[in-house]
Amino acid sequence: MNELMERYIYAVVKRLPEKQREEVKKELRSNIEDMLQGSKRIEDLEEILTQLGEPRILANEYRDKQRHLIGPAWMDDYLNVLKIVMVVVVSLALVFGLFEDLFNTDSNNIFGFVFEVFFKAIGNMWDAALSAFAVVTLVFVGIEAAESSPKKRTWKLQDLPQLPKEDSPKIKRGHAIAGLIFEIIFGSIWIFLLYYNVSYIGWFEEGTGWTVTVPLFSNAAIMTYIPAFIISVIIGIAAELLKVFYGAWNLQVVLGHTIHKFIAFLVMVGFLSMTDLINPLFTEQVLSYGVMDATQIAEMYHGIAIGIIALTALGVVADLIKCWILFLKRGRQSK
C-alpha cells in the first residue's frame, strides 16, 4: 500500500525542479495520509490517488510558471517561416544532392544506379529538412526566451504591418512557392553546369561512356563570369520570396520582379557577348570537319548569340509589360 503511494508521489516530483522535490514530496505524503484518515484499505488509497489525478498534470500545477519552447504568440510566425525555409532548403538539397550522386555512384548497372540515386536523394532531403527544422526551431526558441525575459519588449504601433492592398491582383500561394522552387532548382542547375562546364558542355566523344573531349566554352572566361550568375540567381530567389511573402502584385513585388528580370537579362547579354567565351580549341575541332570555314563559324556563333538575346528580350519585355499593366490598372480602379 505504501509502495503505491510512493510510486504516485515519485511520478509527480520527478517532473519538478530538484530544489522543490523534497518539500513537495513531504507535502503530498502528509496530504494523502490525511485524506486516508487512518484507513488501511488499498481501495481508499486508489480512490484518493485517482481523485488527485494524473501525476503529469498535478506536477504541472505545482510548477511556478508555464513552460514552453515556443508559445502560442509566436506559433503562427514559426510555422510560416518553417514552411518557407523547408521548401527552400529541401529543394536546394535535392538539386545539389542529385548532381553529386549522379556522378558518384558505386553501382554499375542501371537499376542499381537508379535506386542508389533515388535513395541518396531522399537521404539528402531528409538531412536538409532535419537541419532546417532544427535551426528555425532554435531561432524561435531564442526569440521566445528573449521575449519572456523580465525586461519584456513592448510592442509599438509603428510595428503594425501595412494593410495588403485589396486591389492588388493576388498571387496564389502555390504558384509563388512553385516559382520559388523553380528559381532555386534551375538557378542552381545552371550555375552547376557552368562551373563544371568542362565535363558537361562541349564536344562529346565516345570513350568509356560519352565524355567531353573539347569543352565548348573557355573555362577561364566562365569562371570570371560565374559570380554574376550567382548574384542574378540570388536576386531571383529574393524576388520570388517577395511574392510568397506579399501574395499579391503590389509595388514591392512588381519592382522586385522587374529588377530581377532586368539583371538576369543584363547578365545573360554580358555573358553571350564576351569575346573570349568560346574555346578556340572547340572552333578548331569544328573546322577540322571541313563543313564550315572560320568566318562561317564566327557568324554562326554571332547569329546564335543575337538570336538568344533577341528572344529573351522579347520574353522579358512582354512579361514586364504584362505585370506592370496588371499592377497599374488595379491601382487606377481603386481611385
Binding site: E27, N31, Q51, G53, E61, Y62
Partner: peptide, 8 residues
Amino acid sequence: EAGTLYPL
C-alpha cells in the same frame, strides 16, 4: 479539487 488546492 484536491489536485488543485494543494498546488495552489
